[in-house]
Simulated assay, not measured.
Amino acid sequence: MKELKGYRFRIYPDEIQKKFFVETFGCVRFTYNHLLMNKQEPGIDKMTPAQLKQAHPFLKEVDSLALANAQRNLERAFRNYHNGRAGYPKLKSKKNSWQSYTTNNQKGTIHLSEGYLKLPKLKERVALNQHREVKGEIKSATISAKNNQEFYVSLLCLEEIPPLKKTGEVVHLNFDEEHLVQLDRKLILPKFCQEKLEQKIEQAERRLSCRKKAARRKKIQLQSAQNYQKQKRIVEQLQQEKANQMKNHLEQVSFLLVNHFDKINIQSQSSNLEAPNAIPNFQLKDWKQFVSKLRYKTQWYQKELVKQK
């Protein structure tokens, strides 16, 4: 069965490539915001990226597919809004720490070769850390950056995913704040503990607060306070490490269950499960991410997922 599968890698663009990426982020943001404002004006014809290019020639310098995808993303945002899945679309801000754009593969315009990534509109290939093999056909690539310093690529590929071996086993599971899941069958799950990392984050946040107070005493704006900004980056790195550890654990547990059981029954949960007086290892948002991973993995590997009330 062919399915869409994503891969994410760290990339290391040179200064010219960084400039191109940052300019493309800005043009995509510009396009998205102008199309959104156009939709908010009654009685005005629908605007397109092509019309924007005529009025703003600098948009011609970047990947046209990135601008077209900005339009598609806005249309998707409005569909989600009208279907009650999301709030009303908001303007994109350059102050957001994460910026991104998406382009499509057209006859090999995106491909990997010998530790390098080829992208549309770039003459030179971009170095990347390809830590796993990419199988199947690349359909699109999303370039993202954190504070325009750390750059990543997410590749969406259409590939053949072989089914897992049938076991004939069925399991019922529930949300557990300490271990993530409660099983009615015996199965050793990977251990998970972030206590030491939580302590590091707490200590780093206290230090950040002290440096914020010190900057204010000296009447220095936080954007110009070097010690504050340095500590802020440390806090962000620790929080990202925490998120990565959680994501990795959810991946391991979800694949383990799909590999061992042909049918997975999940008991629906309500928000009152979260303990008010204790800090749990897992929260309902983690459980929802976990169920989402089970949903697509059971589809990939031809297993069955049943949500019970």
Rank of each mutant, 00 (worst) to 15 (best):
G6L: 06
R8F: 01
I11K: 03
Y12R: 06
E15K: 08
K19I: 09
K19R: 13
E23D: 12
G26R: 12
R29H: 08
T31A: 11
Y32C: 06
Q40F: 04
D45F: 04
D45S: 09
A50L: 10
Q54S: 11
H56M: 04
H56S: 06
V62G: 02
V62D: 01
N73I: 01
L74V: 02
L74A: 13
E75M: 05
A86W: 02
A86D: 12
L91A: 08
K92Q: 11
K94F: 01
K94G: 03
K95E: 15
S97M: 02
Q99W: 09
S100D: 05
T102R: 09
N104L: 07
N104P: 03
G108N: 00
G108Q: 03
I110Y: 01
S113T: 07
E114T: 11
Y116Q: 12
L117M: 09
L119S: 13
A127S: 10
L128A: 04
L128Q: 01
H131A: 07
K135G: 06
I138V: 12
K139H: 04
S144L: 08
E150C: 10
T167V: 03
G168Q: 10
V171D: 00
E177P: 15
I188K: 12
L189D: 00
E195G: 03
E195W: 00
I201P: 00
Q203P: 02
L208T: 04
C210E: 12
A215W: 11
K219T: 07
Q221R: 13
Q223N: 14
A225M: 13
Q226K: 13
N227I: 02
N227C: 10
Q231R: 14
I234K: 07
Q237I: 00
E251G: 01
L256H: 10
I264H: 04
E274V: 15
F282D: 01
D286C: 12
W287N: 03
F290M: 06
K293R: 08
R295M: 12
R295F: 13
Y296L: 01
Q299E: 08
V306E: 13
